[in-house]
């Protein structure tokens, strides 16, 4: 049977590497399924689950907090983020870094914590969804 090689890596370590019949990924424009000989595709991922169907055995689930995806006819590469990312969250982090440099940290905690909480919420929701699905399969 035709398979496609899947690599899932994060900056802090390799998560998965192996062949698959099909992969499902949370692309920024909606979930996509990738089979062997897919057209080359480049997109960003949002937080969610990656489902890998290996040639044999059960489907495997991985949680990614966003990232980038490259699809080649024989290869899928997922660059997973280990950190929660959002434009305003990154912005807040940059602001904090600047302020640390200026040693004037006071008074800017609100914006940071709010953006952080929102991104955390999105991650938690995606994780919950995945746990539920896992339960359904197991139970």
């Amino acid at each position: 049977m035709d398979t496609i090689h899947v690599d899932i890596v994060s900056a802090e370590g390799e998560i998965f590497s192996g062949p698959a019949r099909m992969v499902f990924l949370p692309a920024s424009q909606g979930e996509i399924g990738v089979t062997p000989r897919h057209a080359p595709l480049l997109t960003l991922l949002k937080p969610g689950e990656v489902r890998v169907q290996p040639p044999e055995g059960e489907e495997q689930f991985f949680f990614v907090g966003g990232g980038a995806l490259e699809v080649q006819p024989k290869k899928v590469t997922v660059l997973a983020d280990t950190a929660a990312r959002a434009k305003d969250l990154d912005e807040a982090a940059a602001l904090a870094a600047r302020q640390r440099a200026e040693e004037a940290l006071a008074g800017q905690y609100d914006k940071i914590t709010q953006a952080e909480a929102l991104a955390e919420l999105a991650r938690a929701a995606a994780q919950l969804k995945m746990i539920e699905r896992l339960r359904k399969i197991k139970g």
Partner: peptide, 15 residues
Amino acid sequence: PHVRDLIGTVKVMLD
């Protein structure tokens, strides 16, 4: 070190 701790600092330079 974690990537998330570095994002902001690097972003200042990228910006």
